[in-house]
Design a protein around this nucleic acid. Structure first.
Lengths: 342, 342
DNA sequence: CTGTTAGCGCCTTCAC
DNA sequence: GTGAAGGCGCTAACAG
């Protein structure tokens, strides 16, 4: 069998005795090619090990059918369902997903933004909470309609793009209401980085509601760390070994709540009898751990799917998208919250 | 300022009064262009908001400078350091990383393999433990030198490509030796899916050594589940509530070991006084948890970097790569192992 | 140092 | 239903 090293559409055409147009059609629009011709071409292509060169196709089409999702830490299990939601939606439209982990590193951020701006991807979903600098500049110079579509999962300072967001402020008030209603007065908040608007809002929502109820969150009851079990474990230990420790803790993620629970257990403190804990995210494990976690439910998968949906709408047509979509949140009361000890 | 909607190299050339070649060089090989010409071109390009069209560049170059990493579950924290290792190595050569999560789903697997085969990526690193079907076929038909380079992180049935692997069999023997040496005789193994060669090897290495020492692992002491905390938690509870429960548990990952520890704690069993636990992976948290985890250390970051290195060697030149590279492993004894209770 | 000239592989009118 | 021809945006010889 005479093999060509890397057959192109032209090789197939020549050997099959047809034009390149016919070969192209045989693959892209099979019904526009007569049955005998089609099978002959397809068979030959298969025999020669021909494969469409997608680099050429993408170039010709002027798009890549890829979208980038920018996150700050791919290892954060929070994202796993979020990715799934995006991926399912993207795949349905023939798009594939590129996951960009910035790891808080400006260079990698730039790399991925560069891929968008230079046409290696058709759109971008941002869920880092930050506006990449390299993106802010082009958006400031040109109207967004001249640039590839971007959707953010939070309001971003300095970047006016459609958002699909959750109401961090209001959902945190739910946590405060719940704890206040149980009788807690001395409460702590374990926060994600407050330079990220979302976390700042969670703190503000919680603190504002406490204040409205005539209370206050002392400064030394507000601590900040990374969104990991380990980070929260350390913070909680510090928090609880102070004089006059809190009777309740509001953590900015379930991962952090898990760390808090771990620390409390090590300190010999019982949850919820001695200390209450409220998490955030409603991770899959929240309902199965012991004690089951009281937390703020986020529709993570739907969130991803919706963000992707909005992006694809822009990719396809011009610009007919809602500017802001709010995802519903909900307080799920389980077993880590109870009235404070007398 | 007269704006072109989407300026190309040709627009810049025309307006700047130079040839397209010069514009191209000004970007790709700045030192080959005279200073005044270069700045004039670059300035103009900037002013016009020109951006290189990477689709065209990739097409022209015949490559995309992207490599795909295939994993079975992106949410498994095991991968996080592994990705980092790959990414650092890749970035150093100007390559970017596409993470493909198969989620055990054959369709997504096919998607990513398709991207490789159609030239949307230049190479593939497999760390799922399985050989994707859609990859086996082309490799069976053509010599691998005609196909894009692939590196696997385990020996794969039905796919003869270079591997960068760990010795699952031998490292599991280390765990067995340690436990045996402490005096354990009744031991259980919490396994990952045994249809994945790596996990089957871990079980075999452990069991064979026990057998050589005149012991045996009863069938009901071998359990299998997903690589998650929760899965191992359930398995451990079952294991320990049988008559004659084991005095030691060898888990196929640290995540699983964490689940086991959690279950033991809930059952009121003390580690290591009453039950010993050995993990696998040496995750970052292994040394900080209480009690600190005895485990098999894997150089995860280096593993990723080495796999990437081997891949890039193939991408660049023809085929001068070692067929198999073994990463070193090591037993790290910490606090979860001790002699069994008398 | 710079310009001219050919395409890379595919798709897509426009004829036939 | 099929073929001929042009071009997507860029780069890489090869001259000058």
């Amino acid at each position: 069998m005479s093999k060509v090293k890397n057959p192109t559409i032209r090789d197939i055409a020549r050997i099959a005795g047809v034009s390149t147009a016919t070969v192209s059609r045989a693959f892209a629009k099979p019904d526009q090619v007569a049955e005998p011709t089609r099978t002959r071409v397809l068979d030959l292509a298969d025999r020669l090990g021909y494969r469409l060169n997608m680099r050429a196709v993408d170039f010709r089409h002027g798009r890549t059918y890829a979208i980038i999702v920018l996150v700050s830490d791919i290892a954060n299990p929070f994202y796993s369902e979020f990715f799934k939601g995006i991926e399912e939606r993207a795949r349905a439209d023939g798009y594939i997903l590129l996951i960009g982990d910035t790891a808080g590193d400006a260079t990698s951020e730039e790399t991925y933004v560069g891929m968008l701006l230079t046409g290696r991807a058709d759109g971008l979903i941002i869920n880092t909470g930050f506006c990449p600098e390299s993106l802010a500049e082009p958006f400031a110079r040109s109207p967004s309609s001249m640039l590839p579509p971007v959707v953010s999962c939070a309001d971003l300072d300095g970047l006016d793009v459609p958002t699909v967001r959750i109401d961090n402020y209001r959902s945190s008030q739910l946590a405060a209401e719940h704890l206040l209603g149980l009788g807690h007065r001395r409460m702590a908040v374990i926060c994600g980085s407050l330079s990220i608007r979302g976390f700042a809002d969670r703190l503000a929502g919680f603190a504002d509601l406490v204040r409205q109820a005539g209370g206050v969150i002392p400064d030394d009851m507000i601590v900040t760390g990374r969104m990991t079990i380990e980070s929260a474990r350390a913070l909680t230990t510090t928090l609880m070994t102070r004089d006059d420790p809190p009777t309740a803790i509001f953590a900015h993620s379930d991962e952090m709540a898990m760390g808090a629970l771990h620390a409390l257990r090590n300190l010999g403190l019982r949850v919820p009898e001695q200390v209450s804990v409220v998490g955030y995210d409603d991770m899959n494990y929240a309902k199965v751990v012991t004690p089951a976690l009281t937390t703020i439910h986020l529709p993570r998968r739907l969130w991803g799917a919706t963000a992707c949906q909005q992006l694809l709408l822009q990719v396809g047509s011009g610009d007919r998208v809602q500017r802001n979509i709010d995802m519903p949140t909900e307080l799920i009361v389980r077993q880590t919250t109870a009235p404070p000890p007398r």
